[in-house]
């Protein structure tokens, strides 16, 4: 990764989180009681607890609000998706296990070193 790209990436991340802090504060103070009746009259610590979510997940809840997506979709069983994910990820992990054995770094010993230069390895 180039230095310029890394700088840009970290700058973007910082910008995202600063925006998140602003949106997050708005969310916990004004929006939460409107989005969920359960948040009406909830305590200070509840607001503190949902703040990190409001700050980090702001694109998710913001677009949800803008698009007025139906929030209450009927619950579905997700077992099949679990299984599909595992069927994809498990072979990949097995592959990385085998790969990690193959790429293990080994430094061959040197037998041409002048004896006068040798020192004990545990120092």
């Amino acid at each position: 990764m180039s230095l310029a790209f890394a700088h840009a990436f970290i700058a973007a991340l910082t910008f995202y989180l600063i925006l998140g802090a602003v949106f997050g504060l708005t969310h916990v103070v004004f929006l939460a009681p409107r989005l969920d009746a359960g948040a009406k009259g909830s305590g200070f610590w509840f607001r503190v607890m949902i703040f990190p979510g409001a700050a980090v997940l702001w694109p998710l809840w913001l677009f949800g609000l803008i698009l007025r997506r139906a929030r209450q979709s009927p619950p579905k069983p997700w077992r099949r998706l679990h299984l599909r994910l595992w069927v994809v990820l498990a072979p990949l992990i097995v592959l990385s296990l085998m790969l990690s054995l193959m790429v293990r770094p080994v430094i061959p010993k040197n037998d041409t070193l002048p004896a006068a230069l040798l020192e004990r390895a545990d120092d």
């Binding site: 430094i107 010993k109 040197n110 037998d111 070193l113 230069l117 040798l118 020192e119 004990r120 390895a121």
Partner: peptide
């Protein structure tokens, strides 16, 4: 650091 035989090395 270059490892040598018998637990020795050179820096």
């Amino acid at each position: 650091v270059a490892p040598a035989a018998q637990g020795k090395r050179t820096i």
